[in-house]
């Protein structure tokens, strides 16, 4: 049997059953937590595409999450609160920001690249902190959840969960195709040996720039969903700690594995939630677990299905 094809299928099918299981528990709380986990899984997966597949450790991924969230907030305020419209605005905005900043960041290598992505992320953070028209530090509330193509279908929490799941599944299929495409092969080759790639006649910069734009676009969709889940957006969406959380999720899940990023995000959020009901110091318990997984190599993906 081809595990590569079967594991994602089972995984998404299991996730589709979560709202049914939630009926027997504290439904609203469970659905909210699960939806949040799916949204972060989408964001972590978008980072995985850059970090694991492209070898670009971006420490500013939360900026795209924030851009998506603010795009949703702005549209909602001015009566454009439709999920498709919000995503359609957030995607080009984030891709544009990614191209503009990565065109500079990508000229730096290694740690300097990481630092410059962090710097651009912080710039955007402080921009929204000082933007009083959108509440500045206090953030802004969304009056109602976005409509979907004119219907109020998303008003139900369960439907919204499925919308997030659909976005995650579509994002997964899309990225999986891209990783296996000619473009993805060049990207993977750049990660392994950039000098060799240039000697073949490819300009790594163009491919990495495109990868940043794709990653940002997908992460912005996660931002749109997050804004609508919380009905609230603030600069806290895009702190550098949040970028760090996303890196932790991808590493926990297994570097290079898209499915692993999903698993990592779900495990990280659920574990944090669970541990925090017993202790305030959840990091104290999650930290060692992360070290163990990192030392083991291939992350949770390696443990669960043996790799990618």
């Amino acid at each position: 049997m081809n595990w590569r094809a079967v594991v994602p299928g089972f995984g998404f099918a299991a996730l589709a059953l979560v709202p049914l299981a939630a009926r027997w528990g504290p439904e609203a709380y469970a659905l909210n937590l699960a939806t949040r986990a799916l949204i972060f899984a989408l964001a972590a997966m978008s980072l995985q595409f850059m970090l694991g597949c492209g070898g670009l450790v971006s420490f500013g991924q939360a900026a795209y999450l924030g851009l998506g969230a603010y795009a949703a907030a702005i549209l909602a305020r001015y009566g454009g609160g439709d999920l498709l419209l919000e995503a359609g605005t957030a995607i080009p905005a984030a891709a544009l920001f990614a191209v503009a900043t990565s065109a500079i960041s990508l000229r730096a290598k290694g740690v300097y690249y990481i630092m410059s992505t962090l710097a651009f992320g912080q710039m955007l953070y402080f921009f929204f902190v000082s933007l009083s028209a959108l509440g500045g530090d206090d953030g802004v509330t969304l009056d109602a959840r976005a409509r979907l193509a004119g219907t109020d279908w998303l008003a139900s929490d369960r439907a919204f969960y499925y919308a997030a799941l659909a976005a995650l599944a579509l994002g997964y299929l899309l990225l999986d195709r891209i990783v296996g495409s000619r473009f993805g092969r060049v990207l993977g080759a750049i990660r392994q040996n950039p000098l060799r790639v240039r000697a073949l006649g490819f300009e790594p910069f163009r491919y990495q720039l495109a990868a940043c734009a794709i990653s940002a676009a997908l992460c912005a969709v996660a931002g749109v969903l997050l804004a609508n889940l919380n009905s609230f957006v603030s600069p806290a969406f895009m702190t550098w700690q949040r970028s760090g959380d996303l890196i932790v999720m991808t590493v926990l899940g297994g570097v290079g594995s898209l499915g692993g990023a999903i698993l990592g995000a779900l495990a990280y959020l659920l574990a944090s939630e669970l541990v925090s009901t017993y202790t305030e110091h959840s990091g104290l318990w999650i930290g060692p677990a992360l070290v163990l997984v990192a030392l083991r190599g291939r992350g949770l993906a390696g443990l669960v299905w043996g790799g990618r």
Partner: peptide
């Protein structure tokens, strides 16, 4: 070389470099 790639993929990537644009995102390389 690209140690994580198969021998075939290593050479196919070189052929790809001469086979028009590699900004192709969907078909399996």
């Amino acid at each position: 070389l690209f140690d994580g790639f198969s021998a075939l993929d290593n050479v196919a990537l070189a052929a790809q470099a001469r086979a028009g644009s590699s900004f192709r995102f969907f078909a399996r390389a």
